[in-house]
Design a protein around this nucleic acid. Sequence first.
DNA 1: ATGAAAGCGCTAACAG
DNA 2: CTGTTAGCGCTTTCAT
Lengths: 348, 348
Amino acid sequence: MGRMPERVPGRLPGSPPTLADVAERAGVSRQTVSNAVNNAELLRPDTLERVRAAIAELGYLPNRAARNLRTRSSHLLGLRISPHLEGTAEATMDRFVHSLVEASRGAGYHVLLFDAVDRTDPLAGYDDLLRATAVDAFVVTDTYLGNPQAGLLDERGAPFVAFGRPWDDPGAPHPWVDVDGAAGTRLATEHLLDRGHERIAWIGWRKDSTIGEDRRSGWSSGLRDRGLPTTGLASRVEDTVASGRGASAVLLDEARPTAFVCASDTLAVGVLHTLADRGLVAGRDVAVVGFDDSQAAQLVLPGLTSVRQPLEQVAVEVVRALEGVMTHQPRPEPGLLLTPTLSVRGSS
Amino acid sequence: MGRMPERVPGRLPGSPPTLADVAERAGVSRQTVSNAVNNAELLRPDTLERVRAAIAELGYLPNRAARNLRTRSSHLLGLRISPHLEGTAEATMDRFVHSLVEASRGAGYHVLLFDAVDRTDPLAGYDDLLRATAVDAFVVTDTYLGNPQAGLLDERGAPFVAFGRPWDDPGAPHPWVDVDGAAGTRLATEHLLDRGHERIAWIGWRKDSTIGEDRRSGWSSGLRDRGLPTTGLASRVEDTVASGRGASAVLLDEARPTAFVCASDTLAVGVLHTLADRGLVAGRDVAVVGFDDSQAAQLVLPGLTSVRQPLEQVAVEVVRALEGVMTHQPRPEPGLLLTPTLSVRGSS
DNA sequence: ATGAAAGCGCTAACAG
DNA sequence: CTGTTAGCGCTTTCAT
């Protein structure tokens, strides 16, 4: 013995009511209240009604920490975010975060945001949250080639779903959801073909970007299928406005395209700059299509046609897959590939 | 008796090690391990070393749920986000989220994102998280006039810090951090004055936007202090590109300004459109300054000069204030007003 | 259908 | 400086 209670039985005004408070008020035991919350069907209707009334009066909500400890789950989804790249039209991540928060809420989860202390450690942040059982699962978004976190998380048996294909390991066991970039650029290319363009140029990223090559393939196959040439019409550069501007200037001089498909809105804005430099009107003289449907695409004159990723749908599917992972339900297919749409604006 | 242990003593491979595991391995009691983690100075150096070795070998990290339950704190900061407005250059929120995550990490906190189920309920989401003790405090960002959550949270004694002044209640007790919009537009105005402009127009929001009126005051006082007129040079419209475009067209016709200061980048982009319509070159014929330093400002040709909010600094100060709130330290001043900077680009 | 008891993993108070 | 004990609020057997 020899120990004073830390808190007097009479609840402090500030602290929220507990199961015991509700039980006392409703004249039942604590477990009955718990059952009312978690397994309502176990209670007699009149008891349930009484307990529910008490819950409402007290504004009771189960204490999360206690519930988490007991159920060994936090109802939290971890999402690692990276710093913004200034000067680009990077829009995907932010739109996805919003969609994910909404989709998660529907499944009873909240999103916990974290960032990497050490940017060079692919598992930075993940590992700590995992070992501390601070989250139930992760949503991994940076699964471009060469980012090994998916594999590493797989190894540790960490529950997660990737937004992005495991490019370097198609047989990876974890579930993933991705957007078919090639289908997007193909959509863009066919849109331009339908508008009568035959010399359509590509401006994309360096060859070591798998996503870039995927997007490029939609352009090249779209042209090939109509028997149109691609030779001399492609350029691979860094993802900056200046690069897009430079590459388009060279292409216009050397290959005389009437339209451009770009791997990003950033590059496409660069093309618009070149056109303006030369007194050409986007959409009339030369057509331009970007990728990501960023704010910039919506704001620039005359509006940039752009491939739009269905991020709301991605988020819904990610959460659905996550639920499967957490209940250990085997999936027929680990991956799901969604098709983007085209937001048509003045530039085409 | 009559109750089987739910889990065999031999730890399952999947579950993380606990205090007891570390204690056993280090040959000390559980409490000593706890002390090693939380009050290292209580241990003898050699014991500490032994415990630390065991912790490292096992990869031990305290279970968050258990710690949360015991310490009655979650080390989580709640942040409510709203859906994106398409078609505007809204950039503030996303940049702030990133900064907040980083600043929070420094203080040992993670950011929990949530959204409002019922958009009409100002306390939607907040209340539940509070009663469930799922977060330790909130960061409230939507404190424009007429948004009552600050007051309501104050009433419930919820710990929070606002990004944004309590416009409708300057004596509100809660801590807040804000950016001085008037100082920003004044900076913009003086920048234009220094460049020789004397007829500087304003395009802002409707009069019921307090933030809009604040920003407007920086423009008007900047001109007044130099004895320059403002009459007929101001327009108040909705925050869309089309509105900015329309308003600038009217102003150019009726008041012949040589420069524009706008309440947002969205409006400023509208002005750029009008200039392009008329064959005027932004930055040479007419100067334009926006507000928020969005991606669009960086991407448009010839670059949009824009007022930039110091969001990294805001986040740091918000977290600092939060730490004060949670440790119940009285602040000398509830509010902190930070000064924005001007990102000068081709449009001026 | 309801109640009693145990314990999730941790830390705070106390005794040694 | 280390070990013992109690308990945060909840859910989960099990017994009534």
